[in-house]
Design a protein around this nucleic acid. Structure first.
Length: 303
DNA sequence: CGTTCAACCTGGGCGC
DNA sequence: TGCGCCCAGGTTGAAC
C-alpha cells in the first residue's frame, strides 16, 4: 500500500519523535507470524533504549528514524519498510495482534510521555537497525534513484531511456525513481496521456517531460491529500485519519467505469503480475496511429 | 536484458 | 456456514 505520499504522510505524522529519548521499545509477539527484524529484536531493544531520536526521514518508500550517537555508540538508523500494509499509529492501532513495534518516549521538558506503534496486518514489512554504512547499502543510490517529488526528465531518461520495458513496469523500478507504486504509476501515466504498455525506448523527449512533470505533480498533490485510503483499515495517517487522494483517482481501481476525461471505459490489464488501469482513448502509444478515419488510400502516395 | 513465477503474509469478498 | 478461489498499496530471487 504505502507509496511515496503515504510514507511521507507517515513521516510527518511521527516527526515529533525528533529530539525525544526512547524510554522503552517492544516487539510484541502477536498471534500471527513475526515480521523480519534485523538484528534480533532483543538486540535492537538493547541498542536503542535510552538513546535520543535525531530525526525522522524518508527515502523512497522507507522511513528512517535516526538514533543519535551516544554512550559509546555510533549514530544508527531504524529503517522501516511498511511494504503492503504497514503503518504507524500514535493513537489506538487497528488491532492489538498486529502491532510489530512499540516505541515509548520519555517525558521531556513539558512534553508528556508518548507512544508510537508500527502496525502491519500482512506482516510483509521490515524493521532494520543499521549504521551509516548499512544505511548506504540499504537506501543508497544503488538501491534508490532520485525521489519522485523532485525527479526530472533528465533523471528519467538517464535511468530508463534505453529500457525495453513497458513504461508502467519501469516506473515501479525504485532504482530509476524512488517512491512510485502501483496506484501512482497508473495515475501519473493517465495524466501524462501515455499508454502504460509503451516501451520506454519509444518515448520521445516531450513524453519524458510530461512524465516527470506529472510524477512530481501527482505525488505532491497526493502528499497534500495525505495519501490514498482504499477500502479497509490498512492505510490511515498516524493519528488515524483516512487520506483523501483516492477521491481524485482517475483510473486506479476504476475498471469498467467511465474515464473522467473522455467517457471511455477504463481498462484493467496485468503487467508484471500486477494490475494496470488505463484509458485506451486518453493514453495512446507513441508512434501508434490514431484511429483510422477512412479506408481510402492516401492521395498522392500511390501513383 | 527482460519476463515470469513463486514466496513472503493476513484478511476480505465472491461464487457455489 | 463453509470451502475454494481471487484480490490487495511491495520487494526479492530463481528460472528461462
Amino acid at each position: 500500500m504505502p507509496e511515496l505520499p503515504e510514507v511521507e504522510t507517515m513521516r510527518r505524522g511521527i516527526g515529533f519523535l525528533a529530539g525525544r529519548r526512547i524510554a522503552a521499545a517492544e516487539f510484541p509477539r502477536g498471534p500471527v507470524r513475526p515480521i523480519l527484524v534485523e538484528p534480533r529484536p532483543a538486540t535492537v531493544v538493547r541498542q536503542i533504549v535510552g538513546r535520543t531520536i535525531g530525526g525522522v526521514e524518508r527515502r523512497g518508500k522507507r522511513i528512517l528514524i535516526g538514533v543519535a550517537a551516544g554512550a559509546g555508540r555510533p549514530r544508527q538508523w531504524l529503517v522501516i519498510e511498511p511494504r503492503m500494509t504497514g503503518r504507524f499509529a500514535t493513537t489506538t492501532p487497528p488491532t492489538a495482534g498486529h502491532v510489530r513495534l512499540v516505541l515509548r518516549l520519555a517525558v521531556h521538558a513539558d512534553l508528556p510521555a508518548a507512544v508510537v506503534c508500527f502496525w502491519d496486518l500482512r506482516g510483509l514489512g521490515t524493521i532494520r537497525l543499521v549504521d551509516d554504512q548499512g544505511l548506504e547499502r540499504l537506501c543508497g543510490p544503488d538501491r534508490l534513484g532520485p525521489d519522485g517529488l523532485t525527479v526530472t526528465a533528465a533523471d528519467l531518461v538517464t535511468g530508463l531511456g534505453d529500457s525495453r520495458r513497458a513504461v508502467k513496469v519501469a516506473l515501479l523500478d525504485q532504482r530509476a525513481v524512488a517512491g512510485i507504486g502501483n496506484i501512482y504509476a497508473a495515475e501519473i501515466l493517465h495524466r501524462a496521456g501515455i499508454d502504460p504498455r509503451s516501451p520506454c525506448w519509444r518515448l520521445g523527449a516531450e513524453a519524458w517531460e510530461r512524465l516527470a512533470r506529472e510524477t512530481r505533480r501527482v505525488l505532491a498533490e497526493a502528499v497534500r491529500c495525505e495519501g490514498s485510503s482504499i477500502g479497509d483499515e490498512t492505510y490511515k495517517t498516524a493519528d488515524d485519519r483516512p487520506g483523501r487522494f483516492q477521491r481524485r483517482h482517475r483510473v486506479y481501481g476504476r475498471a469498467g467505469q467511465a474515464c473522467v476525461g473522455c467517457g471511455t471505459s477504463v481498462v484493467r490489464i496485468v503487467q508484471a503480475q500486477r494490475s494496470t488501469f488505463f484509458c485506451p482513448q486518453c493514453q495512446r502509444r507513441p508512434g501508434a496511429r490514431p484511429a483510422r478515419r477512412s479506408k481510402l488510400p492516401r492521395a498522392g502516395r500511390m501513383a
